[in-house]
């Protein structure tokens, strides 16, 4: 296999799968799933440190190998541009001189409400502009709206990350045609411009489908952490990412209404 890495901003990822760190039954299971997935980039959220009841004093970073993984801090749980910018800066501060890679970039998430967890486009664009001006390489989580994706790209996003379907819903890629158009439009001037499907993946075939459409990568969390056997699903997701990419690069045959025989007509014994 000769698959190139995925370049986003100043980082090059060896795997096109980016995985989350949430909802695991234990930090050990998270670590093992990360390894099984083959990913070399994991995303982490920013929250208040507990002042009491610090469970055994362990921090999530103690279970992530800085040599193996690049961290992608995110602004999950932010509902305004102001909050998202504040959280992005705190994430960067935490990674500065920490021994971990990832201080230069952020996954921007600015949500509309708690029920749908859908991206709020106005706040997202506003936060993006502030973060770009502040020197961040911003990977922007957004809905699969073509025009919005174009505006975000123009505003300096390092990567565009349209949702396949709502966060944690497991509905897969609901509108593959929108993803196709986004890919065409965003890659028109630069074929290497990264487009990553983020959110909504339920199982490995969803990843295959996204990758076969030609997206540069997939980001997922719940599909692994919530599976009956997370370790197996982590491996399945890694394989689907690779096979999907290979199939995309290989180029699928066109769909036809009628059959085309695989064996020659000539030389049949009853001919």
């Amino acid at each position: 296999m000769n698959q190139r890495g995925l370049k986003i901003g100043s980082y090059t990822l060896s795997s096109r799968l980016i995985v989350g760190t949430g909802k695991y039954a234990s930090l050990e299971l998270m670590r093992d799933c990360h390894a099984a997935s083959g990913a070399n980039c994991v995303t982490v959220a920013v929250r208040r440190e507990r002042l009491v009841d610090k469970t055994s004093g362990r921090n999530i970073l103690d279970m992530i190998d800085p040599k193996k993984y690049i961290l992608l801090p995110n602004t999950a749980g932010c509902f305004t541009a102001e909050e998202a910018v504040r959280v992005a800066r705190l994430g960067r501060e935490m990674l500065t001189d920490s021994g971990f890679r990832g201080a230069e970039w952020v996954k921007l998430e600015c949500l509309g409400d708690t029920k749908t967890l859908l991206p709020e486009p106005v706040g997202t664009l506003e936060a993006l502009k502030i973060l770009v001006a502040d020197g961040f390489q911003v990977l922007v989580y957004c809905s699969d709206d073509v025009m919005l994706c174009k505006r975000l790209q123009e505003a300096g996003a390092a990567a565009i990350m349209p949702a396949g379907s709502p966060i944690g819903s497991g509905q897969g890629i609901l509108n593959p045609n929108a993803i196709r158009i986004i890919l065409e439009q965003l890659k028109e001037k630069n074929p290497d411009y990264p487009v990553i499907v983020d959110a909504g993946v339920g199982t490995a075939s969803d990843v295959s489908m996204a990758m076969e459409l030609g997206v540069d990568g997939v980001l997922l969390n719940t599909a692994i952490a919530g599976a009956k056997e997370p370790l197996k699903m982590a491996q399945a997701m890694g394989l689907a990412t690779e096979s999907g990419r290979l199939a995309f690069e290989a180029g699928r045959i066109p769909r036809k209404l009628y059959a085309t025989a695989s064996s020659p007509w000539e030389g049949r014994i009853n001919g």
Binding site: G20, G22, V46, R47, R48, I60, L90, E93, M94, I167
Partner: peptide, 30 residues
Amino acid sequence: NREIVTRKQFANTRLAAGDNIEIVTFVGGG
């Protein structure tokens, strides 16, 4: 008070009464 205190400044930054301090860390998330 909404301004980041860098790690290098931790020892030299003195708190004043009424200060609003946020201490954050990384947690699992997607």
